[in-house]
Design a binder for these strands. Structure first.
Lengths: 229, 229
DNA sequence: CAATTTGGTAACAATAAAGTAACAAAAAAG
DNA sequence: CTTTTTTGTTACTTTATTGTTACCAAATTG
């Protein structure tokens, strides 16, 4: 299967190089030469991965990253020329999947891209997901907690699936809203996500008041505990 | 009789191999190289079994699986690339449906296909099906409840047969509608299924208000209690 | 530390799905 | 052609889920 990758990079040389590298690996590549264009393209199409340069004309790269994360669950690799720790931290704090400093070796870049995409593939191919005492059968849409079958409503299951697809990563309530309910914006959508997270926790958490599986990161979103491999 | 098998697999190498293996066993094989194509073919033709790769371009394999189940009762074998580690599956019911991990031995694959088809055959060959106090004579189309002969109308019997063919699995009302009445969509079809489930329950359930045999799963469909073998 | 934002909680209203009964239309039987 | 059975349709009740609201607690901001 061919993965679709979006490159957001203003420097034509680098953009062209990245495009060539990725095409060579068999990926389907689209290039945006500005943050605005990137955001637009990401809205119009469904990509599997975004490669984003931090330094862009117009909107800043971090802002672009935040906006994308705000409304979707797509993984992002951030490119930066600065080697500074501050950048690394702020980049990863947003929830970027990976961070690469320029200049980087072509091989390393390809490896990182491959690693992220193969993990997505891995999750897709699992028939069962195990996290602690939680067991999810993705084929039968059944959830077990410590061997006991738990009955989730369609919406609750959909919410859990969304969290599973990016387990270990923070997902904003906007992204959850879009994935589960299909709305980009909706008055009361925030409450909807909140209440349904509560409902899910009530069913799958041993102690819903001290969640072990569905964790919250203040101001960012929710994160499902990492999947055991 | 020759069984018809649909393979949904995008990688030509694997698809070709599966096709060869199954043809060699005397099955009639059709290959779809994408989820969309697979769904289309399944609509147009009647297959006995579907072999589905979870990882597909375009629509995801799980989505394809759910869509197919939404409107039919056909058994599906899922191909996945799960790692070897999990022994978790043993606790769960696989039943008529199965998954197989890549890479797999050709012999194993053929065996699993054979097992599912022979189970269908088994049900077909079986002159009697027993579930609790319920006894169904498939040759004479007679149903007994605790020794008492029960008279089912043709539609009721057809509905029961459909449930039997996938006993233990949830079947959506859309799938029942298609199997029993032959309609893909029909204004009022939902009510039709509902009322006929009620009629069946009235006849075969000891207490129709607390069904033991024909169970409902909210938002998903109906499930017949597992057959005793 | 007050004001504001974000998250957790419970309770209630609205909605959608499933169960029920009754009746008319259609088909089969006599 | 009448009677009986089956089938399709409808209206209504019950139940589960979903959406909304209000209120409280914790974290952040200034």
């Amino acid at each position: 299967m061919q993965h679709k990758i979006l490159i957001i990079e203003d420097e034509p040389d680098i953009a062209g190089m990245l495009e060539y590298l990725l095409r060579d690996e068999g990926y389907e590549v689209t290039v945006a030469y500005s943050g605005e264009e990137g955001l637009q393209l990401n809205k119009e199409q469904e990509f599997h991965l975004i490669v984003l340069d931090l330094f862009l004309p117009g909107i800043d790269g971090l802002t672009v990253c935040n906006r994308i994360k705000q409304s979707s669950t797509i993984p992002i690799i951030i490119l930066s020329a600065r080697d500074k720790d501050s950048d690394v931290i702020s980049g990863l704090e947003i929830g970027a999947e990976d961070y690469i400093t320029k200049p980087f070796s072509h091989r390393e870049f390809i490896l990182r891209v491959g690693k992220i995409l193969s993990r997505m593939k891995w999750i897709n191919r699992q028939s069962e997901i195990k996290i602690g005492d939680l067991l999810i059968n993705l084929e039968k849409d059944e959830v077990y907690m410590g061997g006991e079958r738990i009955n989730l409503t369609p919406n609750e299951y959909s919410l859990l699936s969304c969290l599973i697809s990016r387990a270990g990563w923070v997902i904003s309530w906007q992204a959850l809203l879009k994935d589960v309910w299909g709305y980009d914006e909706w008055e009361g959508g925030r409450e909807m996500v909140k209440v349904n997270i509560q409902r899910l926790r009530k069913k799958i958490e041993p102690d819903p008041h001290r969640p072990e599986y569905i964790l919250n990161e203040w101001g960012k979103g929710y994160r499902l505990r990492k999947i055991e491999e």
